[in-house]
């Protein structure tokens, strides 16, 4: 035990790759919204994701946890092809959304991203008014027939993001003027305004204070009624609080996946246990 702890990181990784026999736990669910099978991602000559398979069910929150650099964000970005924007990134394997391969050459990324929305680590409202931020998606996709329909969509999205009461009197003020937590909820409102099926959240609370974090977590729980949510988080407590299923990533591999309470109370894999008990991270 002591020897393993002091062993150099490189050796540790070799140990993992050599002994890795496949993801521990049940990675499938009944009637999945998305399924990923044998996904590999390369950045130039770096193998960032190795053979990851995972199902994402309907109306559930899946949390992805793991030490930094383990590939959980990279995997998340595969799910709506945000990795397309990085030139050196190559993705292989199969990712299906409602039975449709999203990496099919004939598939169009624009409607895909309308179906799989994303919320980022740092709140990134556009330098426009609050209203225009939320209305951006419906406008580009032509979702609202007229102005009143658009107004309604904006109000509905802001309400569902729990922001309406705070901003209803200053919709024309710049979105960048809000506090960090409000900005992040604005970004969530912006995402749900296009009614996606899946929302990807890449460490949505890492730049926020505890109170704002609590609000977002509450919001995630509410959104579960209508959306499928995949959330990457640094914080195990957060994963435990908001998610139904949790996957543990380590050095590009999905080590273990299962029901959140089981993972946190009774991890099967030693690496998962080490991480959860705080031996490394």
């Amino acid at each position: 035990m002591i020897v393993e702890k002091t062993a150099p990181a490189e050796d540790a990784s070799q140990v993992i790759h050599a002994n890795f026999g496949g993801t521990v736990g049940d990675l499938t669910v009944a009637e999945p919204r998305m399924t990923a099978r044998n996904v590999n991602v390369h950045y130039a000559d770096k193998h960032a994701i190795i053979d990851v398979s995972l199902d994402i069910g309907r109306h559930e929150v899946v949390a992805l946890i793991g030490p930094s650099g383990c590939g959980k964000s990279t995997f998340l970005r595969c799910l709506n092809r945000m990795n397309d924007t990085i030139d050196s990134c190559r993705v292989s394997g199969e990712i299906m959304l409602d039975g449709q391969d999203i990496y099919d050459k004939k598939l169009d990324v624009v409607p895909l991203r309308a179906r799989v929305g994303m919320v980022f680590q740092k709140p990134n409202p556009f330098p426009k008014s609050i209203y225009d931020n939320v209305a951006y998606g419906p406008r580009i996709h032509g979702l609202a027939e007229d102005q009143s329909a658009l107004d309604e969509m904006v109000e509905d999205s802001l309400r569902r993001a729990g922001l309406w009461d705070e901003v209803k009197d200053r919709l024309q003020q710049p979105g960048t003027g809000l506090s960090g937590g409000q900005q992040q909820r604005l970004c969530i409102a912006r995402t749900i305004a296009v009614s996606p099926e899946v929302i990807l959240m890449d460490e949505p609370c890492s730049a926020l204070d505890p109170i704002a974090t609590a609000k977002i977590e509450e919001l995630i729980d509410e959104l579960r009624q209508n959306f499928t949510i995949v959330i990457v988080t640094h914080s195990m407590q957060q994963a435990a609080r908001v998610s139904q299923r949790t996957g543990y990533f380590h050095l590009g591999r999905l080590i273990e996946v299962g029901k959140t309470d089981e993972i946190f109370t009774n991890p099967q894999h030693k690496l998962t246990e080490d991480y959860i008990t705080g031996r490394f991270g």
């Binding site: 309308a114 996709h141 296009v194």
Partner: peptide
């Protein structure tokens, strides 16, 4: 319906 609308203007 959202998806239809998106596809309509593509």
């Amino acid at each position: 319906t959202t998806l239809d609308k998106v596809n309509a203007s593509l």
